[in-house]
Design a protein around this nucleic acid. Structure first.
Lengths: 136, 136
DNA sequence: CCACCGTGCTTGCAATTGCAAGCAGGGTGC
DNA sequence: GCACCCTGCTTGCAATTGCAAGCACGGTGG
C-alpha cells in the first residue's frame, strides 16, 4: 500500500481517537492491539491488516468499512449511479453473470421501448430515487 | 482468522478460477501474485491480505467485496438490495410492467443466492455447463 | 527530593506473508 | 528415447506485521 494511504489512515484513526477522548493506551486496550503498534499505525509506520482495522473500528464504534475505505482496500459506495446500469453493476448481492443477465433484460426492454414506444405502459412513476444515504 | 474461513475462501477462489477455466498459473499471472502462493491460498495454507484478495478478484472479474466477505473481513451488504429495487422503480426509460419484470428477475437471483451462496457467479440460464473434465 | 501514575514512543524479536527457484507428474512432437 | 510444454505443489528465505519489555517525559502527592 502506498504510504500516502497509510498516512491518511493513521491520521484518521488518531483523529477519531481524539474525538472519542481516548488515550492511545485506552484505545489499544479496547481494540485488543498493543499500544506501540497502534502508535505506529497512527504515525503511518505500519500497515495494519483488515482484522486489526476491524478491531480498531469496533473499539472506536465506527464501521470497519470506514477504515477500509481510508486504508484503500474498499471503495466508497456509490449510492445511486447515473443510471440503472450502474446500480445493477454496483449491487453486491448478485454476481457478475447475474448482473449481465439483468443488464441483458434491461437492454432488451430499452430496445423494445425504442422500437415500440407504446409498450412502456404506465410510466407515470415519477418518484425520486431512493435517498439511500451512505450508512453512518 | 479462523482456519475455517480461510478454508472456505480458498475453496471459493478455486471454484471461481475453475469456472473461469483458468489454470492456477494463468490466474496467478493475471492477478500478479506468485503461483505457489495462490496454490497455498486455495488450499487454505495462507491467509492473504486484502490487497492480494483485491488482485485476485480483479483477475477473476468479480468484486473484491465478494472475496472480503468470504474471508470474513466484510459483512454482506443488505442495504444495497433495496437500492437496486428503488433504482429499477425510478428508471424513466422503462414502464411499470417492465419494472416488475426486472424486479422479479432480481428477486429470483437473490433467492437463488440465499439458498445457494455460490451460485452468484454460477450458471446463468443460457450458459452451457462448464466443460469440466470429469473428476479432473 | 522521591515514588507513582499517566502519556506516547523505541526496540528487538517471533510469527506470518508473499516470493523465487525448483520438483514431480502428465502430455505432445520429433 | 529425448526436449519441451503444461499442470499444481514444495521449500527456503526476505520482508512485513504485531507484540512484549522498556524508555522518556510530564504531572501529582508526600
Amino acid at each position: 500500500m502506498a504510504s500516502l494511504n497509510v498516512g491518511s489512515l493513521g491520521e484518521y484513526i488518531r483523529e477519531q481517537r481524539r474525538n472519542a477522548q481516548y488515550s492511545l493506551r485506552q484505545l489499544a486496550d479496547a481494540a485488543g492491539v498493543s499500544n506501540p503498534y497502534l502508535s505506529q499505525i497512527e504515525r503511518g509506520l505500519r500497515k495494519p491488516s483488515a482484522e486489526i482495522l476491524q478491531q480498531i473500528a469496533k473499539a472506536l464504534r465506527i464501521s470497519a468499512e470506514t477504515l477500509y475505505v481510508q486504508a484503500g482496500i474498499l471503495e466508497e459506495r456509490q449510492e445511486e449511479g447515473p443510471g440503472l446500469r450502474a446500480a445493477i453493476l454496483a449491487d453486491p448481492l448478485i454476481g457478475e453473470r447475474q448482473k449481465q443477465a439483468l443488464l441483458a433484460v434491461y437492454e432488451a426492454f430499452l430496445k423494445e421501448n425504442r422500437e415500440n414506444p407504446e409498450s412502456r405502459d404506465g410510466r407515470a412513476d415519477d418518484a425520486p430515487p431512493a435517498p439511500d444515504a451512505a450508512h453512518g
